[in-house]
């Protein structure tokens, strides 16, 4: 019996033109409603969004960040005070209806300065993430796509950069370049892109051997098109997660550097600068001067971290329930 089927199979294979049409019959009930697509088809991003939406903690983080972004834009205009305007008669005032978050030892309005600090922190975080993204994707993409000796050499360089102690290099650069907003971003990204490059390279290395990439290639697609249309969209998940987690790292680094006296300089206020200024108030009981910058640094980092975790779960199709 077995040998017989094999034989007939061979027969069909070699003379495929001769299969009589009446061999094919529609299956009973093939057009039943069971086979029609009822639900709307979901794209990857829609699917991820639905999963993210059901994650309340991550959504909480997202909403907090949106509100923070809005306040960073309009917050400083809600008060009659400026970021460095000192009102000498009103030093160290506790929060009140005149000064919503109180004032500091120079009579500056903490409310205004807090939102100004939000601008700095968000700007540093987002710029660092964008620069890391650009450099990391290009570097990692080339390394992974080219492979071979190029990859080997490029990864050696990455390995060495990865071995450099991040904050020490940043501190060193800032000592030399002098602290300012642009030098902080520059210092943070000089070695910061390495993590992104490693992730992109790993993904590209894996994806470039998938069938759809070969198919695309066999249709004559140029390298740039393959990278743009095949590779990048399919590495976007891990890249976005990495970017979301870069932002709190950069925000922390900025606050940390400001705290060491290497952050943005007077008259600009950042949360790190405010916390550093308020350090002397631990003993005097002017709690609001420390509380507000400390709270917003922590809450912002928390929000980015939970959003990153949520995105990680949402963007990974393997975790789909």
């Amino acid at each position: 019996m077995k040998s017989q089927t094999t034989q007939s199979h061979d027969h069909i294979d070699s003379n495929s033109k001769e299969i009589p049409l009446d061999w094919f019959k529609p299956l009973e009930g093939a057009n039943d409603s069971a086979n029609t697509v009822v639900r709307p088809s979901l794209s990857y991003w829609k699917d991820a969004w639905i999963r993210l939406r059901s994650n309340y903690i991550a959504m909480g983080g997202l909403i907090f960040l949106i509100l923070l972004g809005i306040m960073a834009i309009i917050g400083p205009y809600l008060t009659p005070y400026t970021v460095d305007g000192t009102i000498l008669a009103d030093q160290n005032q506790p929060p009140s209806s005149t000064y919503w978050f109180g004032t500091d030892n120079l009579g500056r309005d903490v409310f205004t300065r807090t939102w100004y600090g939000a601008r700095i922190s968000l700007f540093v975080g987002i710029m660092a993430a964008l620069i890391d993204f650009t450099v990391g994707v290009i570097y990692g993409g080339i390394s992974g796509y080219k492979g071979g000796r190029t990859d080997n050499l490029m990864m050696r360089i990455v390995e060495i950069l990865y071995g450099l102690p991040y904050l020490l290099v940043v501190i060193l650069l800032l000592v030399v370049l002098g602290p300012s907003l642009s030098t902080i971003i520059l210092a943070l990204t000089v070695t910061g892109w390495v993590g992104m490059a490693r992730i992109v390279r790993g993904q590209v290395l894996q994806i470039k051997n998938y069938e759809y990439v070969h198919a695309s290639k066999s249709f004559g697609a140029k390298t740039s098109r393959i990278i743009r249309k095949n590779l990048l969209p399919n590495t976007m998940g891990p890249i976005i997660v990495q970017m979301t987690l870069t932002v709190p790292t950069a925000i922390f680094a900025e606050a940390f550097l400001s705290f060491l006296g290497l952050g943005v300089q007077f008259p600009v206020a950042s949360w790190g600068v405010m916390a550093n200024d308020a350090l002397t108030t631990i003993l005097s009981g002017h709690w609001w001067r420390l509380f507000f910058p400390a709270f917003f640094i922590s809450a912002t980092m928390f929000a980015f971290n939970v959003l990153g975790d949520g995105l990680q779960d949402a963007l990974d199709p393997k975790l789909r329930r």
Binding site: P248, F252, A255, F256, F259, A275, A278, L279, I282, L290, A294, I297, S298, A299, M301, F302, N305, V306, D309
Partner: peptide
Amino acid sequence: AVLGISIPNFVLATL
């Protein structure tokens, strides 16, 4: 754990 990651060490120290 997430709180521990989110609160910078210098903020925690002063608190």
